[in-house]
Simulated scan of single mutants.
Amino acid sequence: MNLLKIRLIVLLERFKKVTAVAEELGVKQPTISFHMRKMEEEWGTPLFEMKTGKVMLTEAGRLLHHYAEQIDRLYAEAEARMKELQRNGLHKYVIGCNETANAAFLRGSWLTAASELADIQLSLLTGDNDRLHQLLLEGGADLILTSRSSGLSAGNNVLLVEDPLMLLLPAVHPLAGTANLSSLSTYRLAQLPFVLLEDSSLKEAVTAWEAAERMTLSVRWTTDRIEHVISAVRTGSCLTVIPSRCVSETAAGIVSIPLPGSPVYYRMYASWLSSGWSPQLAGRMVGMLQQQAGNAYK
């Protein structure tokens, strides 16, 4: 079964029309019909059936489609990376991260230092935890930084840091001069507007803190960009709670104060596959990240 047939069954499931698949592949309709018959002969079982003018997969066809879709996706990824290598002579290395990890680790000089570890073209993409873990398993990312353990073996799933949550507020806010909020009644915070970064693990940490303090923050809006959070705090429209590593020391007009009560921590993980094209490079990058976090990769 060649790559054309792999692509064909993927497209038939997507479009459910022989004419649409022929147009997508740039061939004539009889060619598609010919390959459909050959595939059924090759596997010795019906793979397709017509229902109300549409091509539907049989149970055997759906089974084959499950594997064909993975092969087609991997081939497309390999093709894209090989074209990039041919174009500029550099391997493309993809790091995926959620916005919180991006703000905590991948800013400033780190990306420059990482790109100098090898002759690579570094590509950074952001997304939520679920999407990033899926990309890693599909081969769309070589290394991911998320707030959720991947479940991979210990050597390929490393806890980078446990980071305490901090309260960010405008420098002109009445609470900004409070050196220690431990003695502050949290009901005052509950009366103030908050903006939160869209991060499921961060929300879980904030919820745990709220439960411990027996209060609920008034979250007026959320965003998936750290810049929007910082801007909202700087302009005085909201306060926020974020991990301490996401607090920029140069954020003008903003102060950070430890949350009152027992400390609550946000965890950040690095994950990569042993079957990736360069697991050794992933290990070196994670070593750099752990040095940055004050740990040593082992």
Rank of each mutant, 00 (worst) to 15 (best):
K28R: 15
E77F: 01
T58Q: 03
S274T: 10
I226N: 06
I226F: 13
Y67N: 08
V55A: 01
L169T: 07
L197G: 07
G108N: 07
S271V: 04
V158Q: 12
E59A: 12
V229Y: 00
L197W: 00
R87N: 11
I95S: 00
N157M: 05
T222Y: 04
A252M: 08
K5A: 05
C238Q: 08
A103M: 06
A251L: 11
L197S: 07
N129E: 14
A232D: 09
I242C: 02
L64F: 06
K16Q: 15
V286E: 03
I257F: 02
Q134A: 13
R148L: 13
R148V: 13
L25M: 15
E24Y: 10
E213M: 15
T223D: 06
P260C: 06
A76K: 11
G96I: 00
A176F: 00
G89N: 11
G139I: 02
V158E: 03
Y187D: 14
E42F: 10
F105E: 00
L169W: 02
A22Q: 05
W209N: 03
E24I: 04
R234A: 09
D72K: 07
R245V: 05
I242V: 15
G155L: 10
G155R: 12
L239K: 02
H91M: 11
N156Q: 14
K92P: 01
E213T: 06
P193R: 02
L167F: 04
A114P: 01
K5R: 15
E204M: 09
M288L: 14
H91L: 14
T222Q: 14
A211I: 13
Y269F: 15
W221D: 11
A282N: 12
G26Q: 07
S182E: 12
L167D: 01
I71R: 11
V18D: 09
E116V: 03
L132I: 05
F34R: 15
T223E: 02
L122S: 00
E249T: 11
K92L: 14
V18L: 03
M39K: 02
L12N: 01
V255F: 00
A103I: 03
E77Y: 01
E116M: 13
V233G: 00
T250A: 11
L273S: 14
W221T: 11
A232I: 05
E198M: 08
S275T: 15
C97R: 07
M39I: 07
E42H: 14
L64M: 12
L202S: 04
G261K: 08
L143W: 06
N157Y: 08
L64E: 07
Q292M: 12
T52M: 10
L106M: 08
T19V: 14
S33C: 09
A60L: 05
R107W: 04
N156T: 12
H66S: 12
Q191C: 06
V94K: 02
S149A: 15
S262Y: 05
E13I: 00
K92Q: 15
S33N: 11
T240M: 03
A104Q: 09
T31I: 08
W209M: 07
D142F: 02
G108T: 04
L125C: 10
L160M: 06
A296Y: 05
K38L: 13
E23C: 01
E162V: 03
T146Y: 01
V195G: 09
S262W: 04
E13F: 04
K54S: 09
G283N: 07
R220I: 10
T31E: 10
I144S: 05
Q70N: 06
R245H: 03
R214I: 10
V264S: 11
V255D: 04
R62Y: 09
